[in-house]
Simulated scan of single mutants.
Amino acid sequence: MTLTKADLVQQIYQNHESFTKAQAAEAVESFLRLSKNALVGGSDLLLSGFGKFNVRDKKPRRGRNPQTGDDLTLDARRVVTFKPSGTLRDKVNKG
């Protein structure tokens, strides 16, 4: 099962009587926009009790085309990694 953005909006709408569905959608969009902007800007995103998103720089590296077997160089790039908090990790492992 996958939790979608629409599911988040619905949960916020149901759990906060003062929110309209449009306000719940805007709250989710605002959070995601702030999160994306932080990561694009190179900042880490720490959500206490959930985990930390990091932006890492990867160096160029050697690769291989699996169809032809030719060697090639993969470009340098930035990647987002996630490290769950101890609290989340414990809850996931306990089921």
Score class of each variant (00 low, 15 high):
residue 2 T to S: 09
residue 2 T to V: 11
residue 4 T to G: 00
residue 5 K to L: 00
residue 5 K to M: 08
residue 7 D to Y: 09
residue 7 D to E: 04
residue 7 D to W: 10
residue 8 L to F: 06
residue 9 V to F: 11
residue 9 V to Y: 05
residue 9 V to A: 11
residue 10 Q to L: 00
residue 10 Q to F: 13
residue 11 Q to N: 04
residue 11 Q to H: 08
residue 13 Y to D: 15
residue 15 N to G: 12
residue 16 H to M: 04
residue 16 H to Y: 02
residue 18 S to Y: 12
residue 19 F to S: 12
residue 21 K to G: 11
residue 21 K to F: 04
residue 21 K to Y: 00
residue 21 K to Q: 14
residue 24 A to E: 08
residue 25 A to I: 09
residue 25 A to N: 07
residue 25 A to R: 13
residue 25 A to Q: 06
residue 26 E to F: 06
residue 27 A to F: 01
residue 27 A to S: 07
residue 28 V to F: 02
residue 28 V to L: 11
residue 29 E to M: 15
residue 29 E to P: 13
residue 30 S to F: 00
residue 30 S to I: 10
residue 30 S to Y: 02
residue 32 L to V: 01
residue 32 L to Q: 03
residue 32 L to Y: 11
residue 33 R to C: 05
residue 33 R to S: 14
residue 33 R to V: 08
residue 34 L to Y: 12
residue 35 S to P: 03
residue 36 K to G: 03
residue 36 K to D: 02
residue 36 K to V: 07
residue 37 N to P: 09
residue 37 N to D: 09
residue 37 N to G: 13
residue 37 N to C: 10
residue 38 A to S: 06
residue 40 V to S: 04
residue 40 V to W: 12
residue 41 G to K: 15
residue 41 G to T: 13
residue 41 G to R: 12
residue 42 G to R: 12
residue 43 S to R: 13
residue 43 S to D: 03
residue 44 D to Y: 01
residue 44 D to M: 01
residue 45 L to A: 00
residue 46 L to P: 00
residue 46 L to R: 10
residue 47 L to S: 06
residue 47 L to W: 05
residue 48 S to N: 01
residue 48 S to H: 07
residue 48 S to L: 00
residue 49 G to V: 08
residue 49 G to S: 05
residue 50 F to E: 15
residue 51 G to R: 12
residue 52 K to Y: 03
residue 53 F to Y: 09
residue 54 N to I: 03
residue 54 N to H: 08
residue 55 V to W: 02
residue 56 R to Q: 07
residue 56 R to D: 04
residue 57 D to H: 00
residue 57 D to A: 06
residue 59 K to Q: 04
residue 61 R to I: 07
residue 61 R to H: 01
residue 62 R to A: 15
residue 62 R to D: 14
residue 63 G to E: 02
residue 63 G to T: 03
residue 64 R to H: 00
residue 64 R to T: 06
residue 65 N to W: 08
residue 66 P to I: 02
residue 67 Q to W: 01
residue 67 Q to S: 14
residue 68 T to C: 15
residue 69 G to N: 04
residue 69 G to L: 05
residue 69 G to A: 01
residue 69 G to M: 01
residue 69 G to Q: 06
residue 70 D to N: 07
residue 71 D to M: 01
residue 71 D to L: 01
residue 71 D to F: 05
residue 72 L to S: 10
residue 73 T to S: 07
residue 74 L to F: 11
residue 75 D to S: 02
residue 75 D to V: 03
residue 77 R to P: 14
residue 78 R to V: 04
residue 79 V to R: 08
residue 79 V to G: 03
residue 79 V to I: 04
residue 79 V to A: 06
residue 80 V to N: 12
residue 80 V to K: 05
residue 81 T to G: 09
residue 83 K to L: 11
residue 83 K to N: 02
residue 83 K to G: 10
residue 85 S to K: 06
residue 86 G to T: 13
residue 87 T to M: 14
residue 87 T to E: 14
residue 88 L to A: 05
residue 89 R to F: 10
residue 89 R to T: 07
residue 90 D to A: 11
residue 90 D to N: 00
residue 90 D to I: 15
residue 91 K to T: 07
residue 92 V to M: 11
residue 93 N to L: 12
residue 93 N to D: 14
residue 93 N to E: 13
residue 94 K to Y: 07
residue 95 G to M: 13
